[in-house]
Measured scan of single mutants.
Amino acid sequence: MSRESDVEAQQSHGSSACSQPHGSVTQSQGSSSQSQGISSSSTSTMPNSSQSSHSSSGTLSSLETVSTQELYSIPEDQEPEDQEPEEPTPAPWARLWALQDGFANLECVNDNYWFGRDKSCEYCFDEPLLKRTDKYRTYSKKHFRIFREVGPKNSYIAYIEDHSGNGTFVNTELVGKGKRRPLNNNSEIALSLSRNKVFVFFDLTVDDQSVYPKALRDEYIMSKTLGSGACGEVKLAFERKTCKKVAIKIISKRKFAIGSAREADPALNVETEIEILKKLNHPCIIKIKNFFDAEDYYIVLELMEGGELFDKVVGNKRLKEATCKLYFYQMLLAVQYLHENGIIHRDLKPENVLLSSQEEDCLIKITDFGHSKILGETSLMRTLCGTPTYLAPEVLVSVGTAGYNRAVDCWSLGVILFICLSGYPPFSEHRTQVSLKDQITSGKYNFIPEVWAEVSEKALDLVKKLLVVDPKARFTTEEALRHPWLQDEDMKRKFQDLLSEENESTALPQVL
């Protein structure tokens, strides 16, 4: 008996699950189920560990084997000379395990699969056993689809999209007709009724959600790893209520002995410091949205989908001078704002400069500016000194954290500008005749005249004003913003236009 009217009423009120309206889709043409990776026989039982391990490696599972009696060998002398080797079968990115008779397991190899009674669906509900069930008529011709799209860092995100009359449910929550939600590992998919569980979705590319604290899981769906560094790992996640993407940084307390840091400095109150950081608001710094204190720290951040500045300059790639100017102007505005709010970044580098898009002209935002507030000064500097390429001379020669101030950030900005303009770092371990530390503390950077011949004198002058060993003589952010190279009204107008595109209400910060 159909429950279409009941569920449609529920759909009209929406769902609290991570779902959002989605535009129309072009329906895929039908194809045989076997060619799409559906096993030839149905099963109602969950797999054992041996079955799972075989399939996850990209080899055929026991459900897909063919009797050897149906095959015969071709003698080598009868092999056609022009026969080309077969292409290897792509490894599946996800697996659906059937929970009921009449449904088959599915190895997801393609990027898009339609499910329903219509014969054009890649996964067609046409098993005779299924057709005899009382629920068969409640399934729509095109009930739902599972697909994946390219996300940040060229990774993939799996989604389920509801197109049914009676509802598609993920972990008992209604997706909603015309809406989608991301699928995470071990999600249970039910059709027409929330208790009519048909599939379990296994994402073969992500970790299980159960490793994360419950308070975090209640608000966010964790997904793929976006990156990792000395101070922690960053994962893509989704807000459950809105389906908006965020980035979540995970900082290990054990790695940084944060408990010991608190004992050594009783004034170090991470929760208080995070609340201060959350109040920071500038178009060129990453917004801190939320914070969870569990076995590790979880910092929920605004997501930038254009990648890191590092990706644009790695491998001796240089940027156009006009692009360097647009990016560097924004970096200076961001660091100036942090300094005005009493925050020294201490870890400025291309990896911590994020881009809003893949376009050459785009907004940038500074991230990882609050680590000293979370990890403690000593722990952070011990970590950073392991990779000193961007560290100021006074940091390398000081004991502990004494003896330096916000000028350290201006040195790091000078190193970043040098790399963007030239395509190579000013200080490098590859210069074996002088140690990296000695290069930095003496201010002897690697200047290649033929490379810098293409760079304007004004740009080079600003680099020199920032890479000054004496912090008292080094340019401040205010002085850098007043430098002739940055007195470019076309560049500032472009920045204002980019801000307006992102948010019509965002105004250009005042600069002296």
Rank of each mutant, 00 (worst) to 15 (best):
S2D: 13
S2A: 11
R3T: 12
E4Y: 14
E4F: 06
E4T: 08
D6K: 08
V7I: 14
V7G: 12
V7K: 08
E8F: 04
E8T: 05
E8V: 09
A9L: 03
Q10A: 06
Q10H: 07
Q10C: 07
Q10W: 14
Q10D: 12
Q11T: 11
Q11R: 09
S12K: 05
H13T: 10
H13L: 10
S15Y: 10
S16R: 08
A17C: 06
A17Y: 08
C18A: 10
C18H: 10
S19G: 11
S19V: 14
Q20G: 08
Q20K: 08
P21D: 05
G23H: 11
G23Y: 02
G23M: 14
S24A: 13
S24Q: 15
S24D: 13
V25W: 14
V25N: 12
T26H: 07
Q27W: 08
Q27T: 09
Q27S: 12
Q27P: 03
S28T: 09
S28A: 11
S28E: 13
G30V: 07
G30Q: 10
G30W: 13
G30L: 06
G30H: 04
S31E: 12
S31H: 12
S32D: 07
Q34F: 10
S35F: 15
S35R: 10
Q36C: 12
Q36G: 06
G37R: 09
I38V: 13
I38Q: 12
S39D: 06
S39N: 15
S39H: 06
S40P: 08
S41R: 08
S42P: 09
S44R: 10
S44L: 07
T45R: 10
P47H: 10
S49F: 11
S50V: 11
Q51V: 08
S52P: 03
S53I: 15
S53G: 07
S55I: 04
S56A: 09
S57V: 09
S57A: 05
S57Q: 04
T59P: 09
T59F: 15
T59E: 05
L60R: 02
L60A: 05
L60Q: 06
L63G: 03
E64M: 00
T65R: 02
T65N: 12
V66W: 10
V66F: 15
V66M: 14
S67R: 01
T68S: 05
T68C: 03
Q69C: 01
Q69V: 07
E70S: 08
L71R: 03
S73F: 13
I74H: 12
E76Y: 12
D77E: 06
D77A: 09
Q78P: 06
Q78E: 11
Q78A: 10
E79Q: 14
P80C: 06
P80N: 15
E81C: 10
E81M: 10
D82W: 06
Q83G: 07
Q83V: 05
Q83P: 11
Q83A: 07
E84C: 02
E84T: 08
E84N: 13
E86H: 05
E86S: 04
E87P: 11
P88H: 11
P88N: 04
P88E: 04
P88S: 09
T89E: 04
T89L: 06
P90N: 08
A91L: 09
P92Y: 13
P92T: 14
W93A: 02
A94T: 03
R95S: 07
R95G: 04
R95I: 01
L96Y: 02
L96C: 11
A98M: 12
A98C: 10
L99N: 07
L99V: 11
L99M: 12
L99H: 07
Q100G: 10
D101Q: 11
D101W: 13
G102D: 07
G102A: 13
G102L: 15
F103C: 03
F103W: 08
F103K: 04
F103Y: 06
N105V: 06
N105W: 05
N105M: 07
C108P: 15
C108D: 01
N110T: 06
N110Y: 12
N110K: 12
D111A: 07
W114V: 10
W114C: 14
W114P: 00
W114K: 14
F115D: 01
F115K: 01
F115T: 05
S120D: 06
C121R: 02
C121I: 14
C121A: 13
E122V: 14
E122P: 05
Y123S: 14
Y123F: 14
F125R: 00
F125G: 04
D126S: 09
D126G: 12
D126H: 10
E127F: 06
K131H: 07
T133E: 04
T133D: 15
K135H: 06
K135N: 08
K135Q: 06
Y136M: 07
T138L: 03
T138R: 04
T138W: 05
Y139M: 02
Y139S: 02
S140E: 01
S140N: 04
K141G: 07
K141A: 13
K141W: 01
K141F: 04
K141Y: 05
K142A: 05
K142N: 05
R145C: 12
F147L: 12
R148S: 11
R148Y: 08
E149K: 10
E149V: 14
V150H: 00
G151E: 05
P152H: 09
K153F: 03
S155R: 05
S155N: 13
I157H: 07
I157K: 01
A158S: 04
A158F: 06
A158Q: 03
Y159N: 15
I160V: 05
I160L: 10
E161T: 15
E161K: 14
D162E: 13
H163R: 07
H163S: 10
H163E: 03
H163P: 12
H163W: 10
S164H: 06
S164Y: 01
G165T: 15
G165D: 10
N166Y: 02
N166D: 02
T168S: 12
T168G: 01
F169S: 04
V170T: 04
V170Q: 08
V170Y: 11
N171V: 01
N171I: 08
N171P: 00
T172M: 12
T172C: 13
T172A: 04
T172H: 04
L174E: 07
V175D: 00
V175I: 10
K177H: 15
G178L: 13
K179L: 08
R180K: 15
R180M: 00
P182R: 00
N184I: 14
N185W: 12
N185H: 14
N185V: 12
N186M: 06
S187G: 13
I189C: 03
S192C: 15
S192P: 15
S194C: 03
S194I: 06
K197R: 02
V198E: 07
F199H: 03
V200T: 12
V200D: 06
F201A: 01
D203C: 13
D203S: 15
T205H: 05
V206T: 02
V206L: 15
V206F: 07
D208N: 07
Q209G: 03
S210C: 07
S210Q: 00
V211F: 08
V211Q: 14
V211E: 03
P213A: 03
P213G: 05
P213R: 02
P213F: 13
P213S: 06
A215S: 02
A215R: 05
R217S: 05
D218S: 07
E219M: 07
Y220H: 01
Y220T: 02
M222E: 00
M222W: 05
M222F: 08
S223P: 02
S223L: 15
S223G: 14
T225C: 01
G227R: 01
S228D: 00
G229C: 02
A230V: 14
C231I: 09
C231E: 12
G232Y: 00
G232L: 01
E233D: 04
V234M: 01
V234Q: 00
K235C: 05
L236T: 07
L236M: 06
F238A: 02
R240S: 03
R240P: 04
T242C: 06
K245F: 11
K245A: 00
V246M: 02
V246W: 15
A247H: 01
I250W: 05
I250E: 03
I250A: 05
I251K: 06
S252A: 06
S252L: 05
K253R: 09
K253I: 14
R254N: 01
R254V: 01
R254W: 08
K255M: 07
K255W: 00
F256Q: 02
F256C: 03
F256P: 06
F256W: 10
F256L: 14
A257V: 06
A257R: 07
I258R: 06
G259A: 09
S260L: 15
S260A: 00
S260E: 05
A261Y: 15
A261F: 06
E263D: 12
E263G: 10
P266A: 09
P266G: 10
L268M: 14
L268N: 06
L268F: 09
L268D: 00
L268C: 07
N269A: 02
N269M: 15
V270S: 14
E271T: 09
E271D: 07
